[in-house]
Design a protein around this nucleic acid. Structure first.
Lengths: 215, 215
DNA sequence: ACCTGAACACCGTTCAAGT
DNA sequence: ACCTGAACACCGTTCAAGT
C-alpha cells in the first residue's frame, strides 16, 4: 500500500474532498496530513501554507465553472435557464463557492455565464447600464440563494418548531398559509419562482413603482 | 480604573463589539479576557464556553429585530418598504446575521417582519401556499443580499481588475455596459432594483413562463 | 528535490484551588 | 458566588536536519 511520491495534486484533491463535505473549518493541516499518510510539514513543502492551499482550491473551482448554454425560446426563458443551471452547479459545492466569494473572485467565476447573460439581455432589447443591472441582479440572486441554502443545511433543526409560530391569529383566516410557513421551504421550487419573477419584471420596459419614499 | 465585578452582560457586550466589527473568527476567549482585564477562565464561569457565548449573541440579535411598519400606498410599495428596512437593519450587523442564519434562527428573527409581510400579501389578494411563497421569496432575497454583501466587503480588492474583463467583444457594441460591469456594483441601488422587480412580478396573478424546460 | 521531528506561539477547555 | 493559574489537547507554522 505504499504510495508513490506525494504530489501537489494529491494534496489538493484530499483538501477539496474535505472542504466539499464538511466545510473549510474542517480542513486542518494535521488531519490532512494524517489522511495522506505523511508528516504535516510535507504539505507545507507542496502548497506553502493553509491559506495558499485554500487559494488553490478556489482557483480550481473558478476554472471548473465553464460556459453555460442558454435554453428556451424567449430571452426571459433563456436567462432563467442560465440562472437555474448556475444555481444547480453552485449548490453542489456551496462551501467552495462561499470561499470563492470571500476572496472576491465571484465576478471572475461568473465571467462565462455573464457573457451568456449579456447576450440574452441584449436580445431582450436592453443596453448599457440598465442591461448591466439586470445581469448583476440575476447574479446576486443566484449567489445569494446558494449562500442562504449553504447555511440552511448546516443548521439541522430549523428553530420555530413546526406550527408553533403560526397557530395564533393568521391560522384562523388562512390556515393554508400558516401551514405552508411552518413547513420548511422547498429551496428548488422557491428559487424557480423567485428567479422567474425577477427576470420577467426586469425585462419589462420601465420601473413602475417610482416615487419618493420615506424610508 | 478598577472595574466593579465582571458581569455576564459585560462579557456579551465586549464579545458583540468584537464580532460586529471583525467577525466571529476574531473572537477568541483569550483576547476577550484581555480586553476585559480578567483571567480567561472567568469568562467561562459567566457564559459557559465559546459556543454558548455565540449562542447568547445570536439570541440577543434575534430579540433586537423588532417589528417594522410598512410605508407606502400600494401593497407592492409597502412590501418593498419592509424589505428595504430589513435590508438596512441587517446590513449593520452582517456577521451577527450570518450567525443567526447558521443557527437556523432566521425564521424566528423574521417573525415580526413576516407577519407584516403576510398582512400586505393578503391585501394584495394572495392566499394560502401562494402567499407563503411570496413572503419567503422576499425573505430569501433580503438575507441573500446581506450574505452576499457581507462577503463582498471582506474581500478588499475585487478581482477582475477594472475593465480587463470586458474590453474584448462586448465593449465595441455596448461600451456603456462594459463600463458598468467593470465597475464595482452599487449594492443599495441593486437591492432596490431587484426587490422592486421581484415584488411587482410576484404580486401579479399567474406565472407566465410556464412550460417544460430541458434543464 | 523532497520529507522529517522538534519546537514555538496560539487556541479552547477543565479542574483544583483560592477568596 | 466569583475568580485564578496550571495543565491538556489541539491548532498553524518555522527550521534545521536528514535523504
Amino acid at each position: 500500500m505504499t504510495r508513490t511520491a506525494l504530489t501537489r495534486d494529491d494534496v489538493l484533491d484530499a483538501a477539496a474532498a474535505l472542504v466539499r463535505q464538511l466545510g473549510p473549518q474542517a480542513l486542518t493541516m494535521r488531519k490532512l496530513a494524517a489522511e495522506l499518510g505523511t508528516a504535516v510539514t510535507s504539505i507545507y513543502w507542496h502548497v506553502g501554507n493553509r491559506e495558499s492551499l485554500l487559494d488553490a482550491l478556489v482557483e480550481r473551482t473558478v476554472h471548473e465553472m465553464g460556459a453555460i448554454r442558454p435554453a428556451g425560446r424567449t430571452p426571459a426563458q433563456r436567462i432563467v435557464s442560465v440562472a437555474r443551471r448556475l444555481h444547480r452547479e453552485l449548490r453542489e459545492r456551496p462551501h467552495l463557492i462561499a470561499m470563492v466569494h470571500e476572496r472576491g473572485l465571484t465576478d471572475r467565476m461568473f465571467l462565462p455565464a455573464q457573457q451568456a447573460l449579456v447576450h440574452e439581455v441584449h436580445a431582450a432589447g436592453l443596453r448599457g447600464a440598465r442591461a448591466a443591472e439586470v445581469v448583476r441582479s440575476v447574479q446576486y440572486q443566484v449567489v445569494g440563494f446558494v449562500l442562504v441554502e449553504r447555511n440552511r443545511d448546516r443548521a439541522p433543526v430549523q428553530s420555530p418548531a413546526r406550527g408553533e409560530l403560526w397557530d395564533s391569529r393568521t391560522a384562523e383566516h388562512d390556515p393554508a398559509l400558516a401551514r405552508a410557513l411552518s413547513r420548511p421551504a422547498d429551496p428548488e421550487k422557491l428559487f424557480e419562482t423567485s428567479v422567474r419573477a425577477l427576470v420577467s419584471a426586469l425585462l419589462e420596459p420601465p420601473a413602475r413603482t417610482r416615487e419618493a419614499d420615506p424610508n
